[in-house]
Every structure is written in structure tokens, then in C-alpha cells.
Design a binder for these strands. Structure first.
Lengths: 204, 204
DNA sequence: TGCATGTTTAACAACGGTGTTAAACATAAG
DNA sequence: CTTATGTTTAACACCGTTGTTAAACATGCA
């Protein structure tokens, strides 16, 4: 029975890699099985359909992505420091999961029906982040520490800056080398730049 | 012969819509034919293969997207005004072609071989924008009008802010209504916010 | 020992998508 | 009128993918 769970997990791990790479529509169950080092009949034995298997992976990934928004609200400290920490934490998360945003966007575009299933647990997270930010902003503004900003726009600013870096990585990776920079070095600079840009927007 | 070109164009237009929506892998040639109001045999008569048809569409789209970078360099005027105009023009372009960035990224991820074919005409555009920006920045910095910034980062900042708005539209569209805002209104605000954020980053 | 469960093997059915072909038809141009 | 070309119809071959099934095997547990 331990063996049983282990195999299921091996298949799930393989499926995660394949789905994240190619999306639902272009992933072949046979290749998942091959990656898992397992017969393709066994995959159907455990999950019956590709759709079932996908949903398990997808839900997990949606949770990971929406939870990542929570990293934007960091520890309790002066607002600007908090935003800085939040941006950096979020940046690091995306750096560790570079394919995640594109994967989620793509699946939701390709099959909007999935949106209904995950809206219930995305919405509260956004609402929570929104509220926490709102409080922080109101306080910091009243203290004259920052300029006013709609929390939704601040979230968009942060997510935009952090996400695009990694979405464009496969495309720009080689081109950037033409400029003589290592891509790793560029990423480091980019993190600093993202923080600096958002903070500039906030500073009075 | 006029008829001939017209039909070819009708097919290309239909293909463009389908490919932009679903990507190469998930688009069916039969559906392209159906949308074009044309028999599916005729499609093969004109283009022989799905791949051929796709390449025609893809090249056109890559050109559109890379050329859009040129809109960032607007008319000749004080640097900050120029950047403002550039951001707005770029924003408007993406607004008119909201599916374009995701489409291009997706195809290049799915089939990196395509990158080689379009790198030759993307690279010069980036280089041109880079150089023009570099000149503008150097001058404005020496006049004490802006803080220094790497042109590549400035490009990234602008593209990031503008692109994500429309990439997340299908996902966030409904959620944002919960906040009581019209999405159209949100977009208008977003355009202002993008300009403001970038300009804040530049101002001394 | 024997049973239950996990796993493999191998073959198969069903389906859908790509691309081909041949025959018929429409129509404009010579 | 005749020919060339664009177009439709309908049928087809080919292939890959999903999902199923039956039989055999391995292994641990009763």
C-alpha cells in the first residue's frame, strides 16, 4: 500500500512536468507514462482519464500560484520595506516556478470552464491581499510616507514586473547574450530594477 | 486571378483567428476551412500543409509584435514626454492585439526551432530601440532631467506593464467586476498607472 | 499455501485530424 | 466553343492518441 501511493506520486510528478511544458492539449498520456517509467495502462488504472490526471495537477498549481500572491504581503514593518520584501519574495517564487504563470493563463484561455472551478479559491486570496494592502496604504499615506495608490494597481504592478521576466526568458535568453550579459546577471539586475520601479512609484 | 488572391486571403484571415486563439497544435485545419467558408480540400490546394499556412500567419504576427516596439520611440520631444507617448502608443497597440504576445510566446516555447527563423528580424528592431533610447537617456541624464537607467531595463519595464494587463484579461475580467469596476474603466486607469509608474522610475 | 493487489505485456477498438485523390462543376478568357 | 483554372463533393488512407481488455506475473500478507 505504500508502494501504491508511491507509484501514484511518480505518475503525478511526471504528469506535472509534461503538462507544465506542453499544456493539457499537447501532452500525451503515453509520454507521461514513459517519463514516470511506468506502463501506459497503469496510468489509466490509477486515473482512468487524462482529464482526471490533469485536474489533480492543475488544482495544485493554481493553489501554488494564488498562494504566491500572499508572499507579496511580507512581515510587519514599515510599508516601503514591506513592499520591497514582498516584491523580492514574489520574484524568487516565480524564479523557482518560471513556467507556472504561462501554464495557468494558457489553460484558462484554452478552457474557460476551468475558471469557474478555481475562482472560489483565487478570489479570497486576492481579496485578502487587497485588504491588507489597503490598510497598509491608508496608514502610510496618512503618515505622509507614500503617495496614494489603488491596491489593485499595486498588485498588478508587482505581478506584471515579476512575471514577464520569466515568461520572456525562453525568447529573450539568447538575444540578451548578444548584449554581452550573462542571463543570470541580468536576472539579478532585474530584481533590483523591479523593486526600484515600484518603490519609485510609491515614494512621495 | 483576382478571385484567386481573394480566396487565399480569406483562408489566411480565418487561419489567423484560429491560430491566435488556439495556437498551432490545437488548431484544426478543418475549422480554419469552416471559418473561411471554404472546403477543407481547398485549403490544402492553396497551402499544401498546415505548417505552411501557419508559417505565413506566424511571420506576419512576429513582425507586427516586433514592430510594435518601435512605437515606444515616439516623436522627437523632451525625453519624459517621449517616453509617455511611447508607453501610451504601445499600450494602445497591445489593446488592439491583446492575444498577440501570448500567442508568440507560446509558439516559441512550444517550438523553439521557430526562434531561429524570426531572430534575424527581431534582433535589429531591439537593437534600434536600444540605441535610440540609449542616446535619449544619455542626453537627458547629462541635463539632469532623469535618473540613469539601462535601456534594456526600461524596455522591459514598459513591455511588462503593458503586456500583462491584456494577458490577464480573460482570467481577471470577471474577478475585477467583484470590485464594482467596469473592466473598460479599469483599463483606462491602468494606462495612466503604467505611464505614472515608469515616469516615477525616471524622474530625479 | 493461497489470496489480493500492483504491475506488465500485448493486443485491440474507437476516434479524430491531416492530407490525398478523382470526378464533377462553374466560370471567365482565349 | 473550348480550355484553363478555381472550387466542390465525397470518399479514402494513414497515423497517432486515448482508453480498454485479458492474460500473465510478482509480491506481500493471511
Amino acid at each position: 500500500m505504500k508502494e501504491e501511493q508511491k507509484t501514484e506520486q511518480v505518475i503525478l510528478d511526471a504528469a506535472e512536468i509534461e503538462f507544465l511544458d506542453k499544456g493539457f492539449g499537447l501532452t500525451k498520456t503515453t509520454e507521461i507514462a514513459a517519463r514516470a517509467g511506468v506502463n501506459h495502462a497503469l496510468l489509466h488504472y490509477y486515473f482512468r482519464t487524462k482529464e482526471n490526471l490533469f485536474e489533480k495537477v492543475f488544482e495544485k498549481k493554481v493553489h501554488e500560484l494564488s498562494d504566491s500572491l500572499l508572499t507579496i504581503i511580507g512581515k510587519d514593518c514599515p510599508f516601503l520595506d514591506r513592499v520591497k520584501g514582498g516584491i523580492e519574495a514574489h520574484f524568487d517564487f516565480i524564479a523557482s516556478n518560471p513556467k507556472l504563470p504561462h501554464f495557468i493563463f494558457n489553460e484558462l484561455i484554452q478552457n474557460p470552464r476551468r475558471l469557474d472551478k478555481c475562482k472560489p479559491f483565487i478570489a479570497p486570496v486576492i481579496a485578502a491581499v487587497y485588504k491588507t494592502m489597503q490598510d497598509g496604504i491608508t496608514k502610510a499615506v496618512s503618515e505622509g510616507k507614500i503617495r496614494d495608490i489603488d491596491p489593485m494597481h499595486l498588485m498588478y504592478d508587482i505581478v506584471s514586473m515579476n512575471v514577464v521576466v520569466f515568461m520572456m526568458q525562453p525568447v529573450i535568453g539568447e538575444v540578451i547574450e548578444l548584449e554581452g550579459k550573462e542571463y543570470g546577471e541580468f536576472l539579478k539586475q532585474r530584481k533590483v530594477e523591479n523593486v526600484e520601479t515600484i518603490l519609485s512609484r510609491l515614494r512621495v
